[in-house]
Design a protein around this nucleic acid. Structure first.
Lengths: 230, 230
DNA sequence: ACCTGAACACCGTTCAAGT
DNA sequence: ACCTGAACACCGTTCAAGT
């Protein structure tokens, strides 16, 4: 039995490491991921990971990117029939579902599209579709950003997880309105879902209003919306 | 010279610890805050902190709460003349300003209103004002949550910090639209600001639309908006 | 009550050594 | 090229000892 410094076939790969890290994050949270622990799950010793990733953070970024890659982008395809508003809605729902499926990695994902390929692919698809739908490029950029704010914000700062179970924790003298709020009575997840749906609808209603204004004033410049109608 | 196990007057207080932690977070980021480092800034040894806080996380929560306490809530006062839409707008701007003033603590703040007194005070003020303005309690709850999603999301997942400087990093074959996007050309902070303003306006436009619907259908139930007009 | 140093059980990362 | 154990410079937290 040799100590086997290097096996004939690599024990690890980036894909195996990311899969194990994702499973660990899902099961036990971000704090559970240490290089020693993760390596242990993979049957190797801690430093082995550094043959495949430069830092632990790079591993977590890769996990976040894998989640981004699960977001459906087909509604932004040029051939897809959905109008921009419906596409944006369906995308937002798919995006949020991907995040709530893996809530523990959201803090990593939420800190920006960064250098993650899948995150950039999302930004690219939204931007392209909005420009095709007649939005000026500056507005198209804003839409990608603001939707991201709302969606990641909703997945991260869950109202649901924000309140404690003990109702007596909220002294009416301190918070005169929270007592009557059914905030605490109602099922927590329902608040998050309702707030997401209400906010998404408001956002899309408001954008539709702005789009109408843009279209009305749109005598200047080429008509970039032609492609979307074809 | 005794080693002085306990001084006549306490060297530390919760307030001093929070102030030093906030300064350290602002200057060097969350990662710079270790109990030994923070204690060093305060001229004591690491374990001393545990006489005033149960965990390091509690210290960071207190820093986040101090930032929440800087958010202006006067627009929700019963005597204030602003209508609900203007109040919501002004509050959102104040909230975002507080966060962008202290960007490094936002990840802590964004993980939910939690047990932080100032965070709860914010939720309470919004809820109360929206109910007074005629929103049904369920909708008032949603509005507090969805505004929070958007505001914290915008402060956390900055588009600006999300893209690298090197333009050649974005191969047009991978991201067909990002090349033409002035995303990279335009000043980064302007994108975040523009996206925030555009999103906030859309959100408020959309909510105003829903409010009109609610008011039109509002024959059932007591008129809770009376107090807001008085 | 409030501070200390020592100690425990960890970290992320580097590196020479092995095959 | 890819894994190992040992080592470095850290962590958060506990605790007995001091005043």
């Amino acid at each position: 039995m040799s100590r086997m410094a290097r096996p004939r076939k690599p024990l690890l790969s980036r894909a195996r490491i990311v899969a194990a890290a994702a499973a660990l994050v899902d099961a036990e949270g971000l704090e559970a991921v240490s290089t020693r622990r993760l390596a242990g799950e993979l049957g190797v010793s801690g430093p082995s990971l550094y043959n495949h990733f430069r830092t632990k953070d790079e591993i977590l970024e890769a996990v976040a990117d894998a989640v981004s890659a699960q977001v459906d982008l087909s509604m932004f395809d040029e051939g897809d029939g959905r109008d921009w508003r419906t596409a944006l809605h369906d995308w937002a729902v798919s995006y949020r579902a991907a995040l709530t499926d893996h809530p523990n990695i959201v803090p990593v994902l939420a800190r920006g599209p960064g250098r993650r390929p899948a995150g950039l692919r999302v930004a690219d698809a939204v931007f392209g579709a909005m420009v095709r739908a007649g939005w000026p490029p500056a507005q198209a950029t804003y839409i990608g950003a603001l939707m991201r704010y709302f969606i990641t914000g909703s997945a991260l700062g869950s109202f649901a997880r924000g309140f404690v179970d003990d109702e007596t924790a909220y002294d009416p003298a301190d918070y005169p309105h929270l007592g009557q709020a059914h905030l605490l009575a109602e099922r927590r997840e329902k608040v998050d879902e309702g707030a997401f749906e209400t906010g998404l609808r408001a956002l899309l209603d408001g954008l539709a209003h702005q789009h109408a204004e843009v279209a009305a004033a749109g005598v200047t410049g080429r008509d970039t919306s032609a492609a979307a109608e074809g």
